[in-house]
Design a protein around this nucleic acid. Structure first.
Length: 440
RNA sequence: GCGGCCGUAGCUCAGUCGGUAGAGCGCCGGGUUGUGAUCCUGGAUGUCGCGGGUUCAAGUCCCGUCGGUCGCCCCA
């Protein structure tokens, strides 16, 4: 008895066009990673459950797909992020790895959340990690890698913005605004929630942190301010009263981005907090310019993480970029083909039409095999009709560049080759066919 | 975990007052004029998401459930 099956909630089926779009994105990620000197790694799709609770606490379990083998006693979880695996891998090899460590990965991840816009239960996330460098060079390289990938996908600084912040700089700025030291964590939480609270609620919460009227207003302004990279240090000083020394960690990153010619993509946004988890310095996010979507990417410096997983203290900067929001932004911005990926599918070099009869039928398999061994992408029809018009329609439907018609000219060792893009047709000798199809 | 909206052919949808299922496009096969077309012809489109209830009778009304979508919580 046939049953109807549905895919699990929040998962995707990748039909050929979908897969072509996915490979398009992955190719940009991989390319940018490689030209920046990162090497590709991967790890297991599931890990011991402990690996995630060590970093994120027991509360994380409800967000995970965790399981136990029937009859087993070990708890596992499908990986919800890659960083713990990476930290484990680094810790395991400890001193044996040449520094700096520059790795990237494009694994799938799983989270047991209710799906919504930009958020699914299974998704791809590109991870770029640079370990072993204390200075801003690490941030600059990781951000450059992200920006070059976005650029390769057709995006520009008017489409997406890289928003930079820094835990230490924000603390200093908040102190100079008058936030009490013991309320600093609350102030960070409030910054993180700036877009979820209305003005009144925001002010009420801010007032609890010891801010006077002037400081309150400045805090509200700073929480939402974006300072263009070129003038950010001065603007931060004016808006928050922090010193040049306070702003130095961000200034170092900005200087490097400017030297690399990437500052046009970047703003300083002190409202970027990224939870209270494990970031120890820089934090950054990439957003669609209008702010309408979830973050395209997020990351920062996490100097304590490898140590947490049993390795030596290792400075580290990492970035994660998910495919779901990125694809939405690319679509929003018109950077995906209008044909839903059709034009990203591989095009056959030639589509063969056996029009002559039995003798052309007999020679076709050998001809195709020979061309394929030579690296050409060639196809044939599976229809029984000899209707050349229909078979040419077939050729067009599979996006073939050329159609090769095996017709009466076979008697002279010739075939007709029709360029389907230009609608031009020539007669070519069989022994020149491979060369002709290669465009030589 | 909570809430809004949605669910009929592959797609877009129609389906009246409750009376056993429709159109267009697309798809597949065949034929004709040899050249992606036109024309002719044939075909599958489907447990109306699924399950229950009301009814003589449910795509239609009610309940539940699954899935999609958008939001809340959370967001590593």
């Amino acid at each position: 008895m046939a049953r109807e099956f549905q895919g699990p909630k929040g998962t995707r089926d990748f039909y050929p066009r979908d897969m072509a779009l996915r490979r398009h994105i992955e190719a940009a990620w991989r390319h940018s990673s490689i030209v920046h000197g990162f090497e590709e790694i991967d790890g297991p799709t599931f890990e011991h459950l402990d690996l995630y609770t060590v970093k994120s606490g027991d509360g994380i379990v409800s967000e995970l797909f965790s399981f136990r083998r029937a009859g087993g006693e070990d708890d596992y979880a499908l990986r919800p992020e890659f960083t713990p695996t990476l930290a484990r891998m680094v810790a395991a090899k400890a001193g044996g790895l040449p520094h700096p460590i520059k790795w990237f990965a494009i694994p799938s991840h799983f989270r047991a959340e209710r799906p919504q816009r930009g958020r699914l239960r299974e998704f791809l996330q590109w991870n770029v990690d640079l370990l072993g460098i204390d200075g801003a060079q690490a941030e600059i390289e990781v951000l450059s890698t992200a920006i070059v990938a976005l650029e390769r996908l057709g995006l520009s600084p008017s489409d997406v913005r890289v928003k930079l912040s820094h835990r230490g700089v924000v603390s200093a700025a908040l102190r100079s605004l008058g936030v009490r030291e013991d309320r600093m964590a609350d102030a960070f939480t409030l910054l993180d929630r700036r877009d979820k609270l209305d003005a009144a609620a925001f002010s009420a919460r801010a007032a609890e942190m010891g801010l006077g009227a002037g400081g309150l207003e400045a805090f509200a302004r700073v929480a939402r301010a974006r300072f263009p990279a070129a003038s950010a240090v001065q603007a931060m000083r004016e808006a928050t009263g922090c010193t040049d020394a306070d702003a130095a960690p961000i200034a170092a990153v900005l200087d490097g981005l400017k030297a690399a010619g990437l500052d046009a993509w970047c703003d300083v946004d002190l409202g970027i907090v990224r939870g209270l988890a494990y970031y120890t310095g820089s934090v950054f996010e990439v957003h669609e310019a209008s702010g309408g979507e979830r973050a395209v990417a997020g990351g920062g410096r996490y100097d304590g993480l490898v140590e947490m997983f049993g390795g030596p203290r290792t400075p580290a900067v990492g970035l994660g970029m998910g495919d779901v929001v990125l694809a939405l932004v690319l679509r929003d911005r018109g950077k995906l083909p209008a044909d839903e990926g059709e034009s990203l599918l591989p095009r056959p070099d030639a589509f063969f039409i056996s029009a002559e009869g039995d003798s052309s039928d007999r020679m076709l398999p050998g001809l195709l095999a020979s061309l394929r061994r030579g690296g050409l992408h060639v196809r044939q029809s599976y229809k029984s009709t000899r209707n050349v018009g229909k078979l040419l329609a077939d050729a067009g439907k599979c996006r073939a560049r050329k159609a090769v018609i095996l017709g009466a000219e076979l008697a002279d060792g010739m075939v007709q080759v029709k360029d389907l893009d230009r609608n031009e047709q020539v007669v070519v000798a069989l022994h020149d066919l491979a060369q002709h199809l290669r465009g030589e």
